[in-house]
């Protein structure tokens, strides 16, 4: 998305106003926002102040504008052995995925096809999403165990697998990270269901003879036969 944060937040408030008050009673968004924040009741005095060092230990989120990036650095080359050792068994040597684990690379120009492949390079809008996710959740089963330098290195390597970084000597760090852009960012749009699917607010739907002729079965689940059978489920004590 190319909009400014301010415009984005305003739209968010507008969206919520619409959702909260229904489609028929839209209210000027800024007004709702101001009203909701104005009333400040007397504090309950429950809870204690969180200390800066406590916050530092848990505050691991990273945003597209770079807020939250930890200090650190790593090259594609340094990332390769980390990836091979800690990531490749699930995500594949080249990010192509092993089995049903998430695919990380490939799939360029497939999003409008019958078989879209949603990889970091083909789909994800922001590189910050990748480093944030690796930092909080990966490696799977050993989350939050990478050092900051390992984090930058392995992120650089995944971006290299996606041709976002092309030079294996490239060093990714907290200073240059926000300059990395992913190609699909512009293809994310806001939720426009209330406009594009306006026809579904039809108020009085058809009750009699709503379609010509008799209904014909056009597809059957049993033909596909992928439903688990009763008795094959998990054991229950």
């Amino acid at each position: 998305m190319s909009k400014s944060p301010k415009a984005f937040a305003l739209f968010g408030a507008f969206l919520v106003a619409v959702l909260t008050f229904g489609v028929t009673q839209m209210i000027e968004p800024r007004l709702v926002h101001a009203q909701a924040q104005k009333a400040k009741p007397k504090p309950l005095g429950i809870g204690r102040e969180a200390k800066p060092e406590e916050i530092a230990g848990w505050d691991i989120d990273i945003r597209p504008d770079g807020q939250g990036l930890p200090p650190g650095k790593g090259t594609v080359k340094e990332g390769e052995p980390i990836y091979v050792e800690r990531c490749a068994s699930c995500h594949g040597e080249f990010g192509e995925s092993a089995g049903r684990w998430p695919i990380l690379s490939g799939g360029n120009a497939t999003l409008a096809s019958h078989d879209p492949v949603k990889s970091v390079g083909s789909y994800w809008p922001y590189a910050s999403t990748l480093i944030d996710y690796i930092r909080r959740a990966m490696p799977y089963g050993a989350a939050q165990t990478l050092t900051n330098d390992e984090l930058y290195a392995v992120t650089a390597y995944v971006l290299y697998l996606n041709d976002v970084i092309k030079d294996e000597k490239f060093e990714l760090n907290d200073k240059n990270f926000s300059s990395i852009k992913l190609p699909n960012q512009a293809n994310f749009t806001e939720d426009d269901r209330e406009k594009s699917e306006r026809a579904f607010w039809r108020k009085e739907p058809c009750m009699k003879n709503c379609a010509p002729g008799e209904a014909k079965v056009t597809g059957r689940a049993r033909v596909i036969d992928v439903t688990p059978e009763t008795g094959k489920g998990p054991r229950v004590e």
């Binding site: 968010g12 945003r63 597209p64 949603k118 789909y123 994310f188 749009t189 269901r193």
Partner: peptide
């Protein structure tokens, strides 16, 4: 003051349309 665009609101839980564009923040 702005959304974080984390994995569960970009890579996942976004609705890919036929034209290759994807709706984001489809909460309701």
């Amino acid at each position: 003051d702005q959304p974080w665009h984390h994995r569960e609101e970009t890579s996942k839980y976004t609705d890919l349309l036929e034209n290759g564009k994807a709706r984001q923040f489809t909460y309701v």
